[in-house]
Design a protein around this nucleic acid. Structure first.
Length: 242
DNA sequence: TCATTAAATTGTT
DNA sequence: AACAATTTAATGA
């Protein structure tokens, strides 16, 4: 049960990159917090790429070139392929920005970022990222908030991994994806197939289907074609085994 | 815009 | 893992 990995051509970002379109800019929360001149430089440097399903955005050990943000689609962070047990850390739905930790330290990536399906991803160059970090208080605030919230996510993810009940695992994982601060682009309808959710949670598609119906029975969510709508986020977070 | 067809996703065994 | 049923997306008149 693993996603077929698509071979990635060298430097795919530089080849198919284009400037960000107006519609996509609206979904980048930190842009509006910048001063006009800062925004101008950020816009000039922002690149947008389409990544196909299974494609790897960055690999463990590769030098950092961009700070990434998900405009549309779904990515997953994991540490698989190399040595060790494949572990999916988290899913990255629209509105999520990531990689700031490694960008700040100018280290190599510590995770693989793989597209679960065709996605649109924005990238801000490392130099511009540091330039903004050095002069914009609002930008710092945004990055700090991201780091803080994500720390909470990872702690939560450890708890999820220890739970055996599939329904609870699905519930918690879903709740994490609906995090309003980290993933403002999600809204109340998350575009994710049951197959994709299975990849993230580490369950079969059948079991995910069963869990979703259980959660729907409890009024937490509503199953839609190609997605899940949250009806009660709090209940989803606190869902307990029956 | 509508009808037809192909592809994707879901529900079930 | 396989299958049928359903929904969406793509195509072309």
């Amino acid at each position: 049960m693993s996603l077929p990995v698509v071979p990635v051509p060298a430097l795919p970002l530089l080849k198919r990159a284009r400037h960000a379109a107006a519609a996509e800019l609206h979904d980048i929360p930190w842009l509006s917090a910048l001063q006009p001149d800062e925004r101008e430089r950020a816009l000039a440097d922002l690149r947008v790429v389409q990544v196909a399903a299974g494609e790897l955005l960055c690999r463990v050990g590769r030098p950092v070139t961009y700070w990434f943000g998900v405009i549309d689609g779904l990515l997953k962070m994991s540490n698989d392929t190399a040595v060790g047990v494949p572990i999916t850390f988290t899913g990255m739905p629209p509105g999520g920005w990531f990689g700031e930790g490694t960008v700040i330290k100018r280290e190599a990536y510590r995770y693989n970022i793989q597209a679960l399906r065709r996605s649109v991803v924005a990238g801000l160059g490392v130099e511009t990222f540091h330039w903004l970090l050095a002069r914009s208080i609002p930008f710092n605030r945004f990055v700090m908030q991201q780091l803080n919230e994500r720390l909470g996510q990872f702690i939560g993810a450890r708890e999820i991994d220890r739970m055996s009940d599939p329904d609870v695992r699905v519930a918690r994982s879903l709740a994490a994806l609906f995090h309003p601060v980290l993933y403002p682009g999600v809204g109340s309808l998350l575009r994710i197939t049951q197959q994709e959710l299975g990849y993230l949670v580490g369950l079969s598609r059948q079991r995910v289907n069963e869990s979703l119906h259980s959660l729907q029975q409890h009024g937490c969510i509503r199953i839609e074609y190609g997605g899940v709508r949250v009806l009660d986020l709090q209940a989803l977070r606190e869902h307990m085994p029956q």
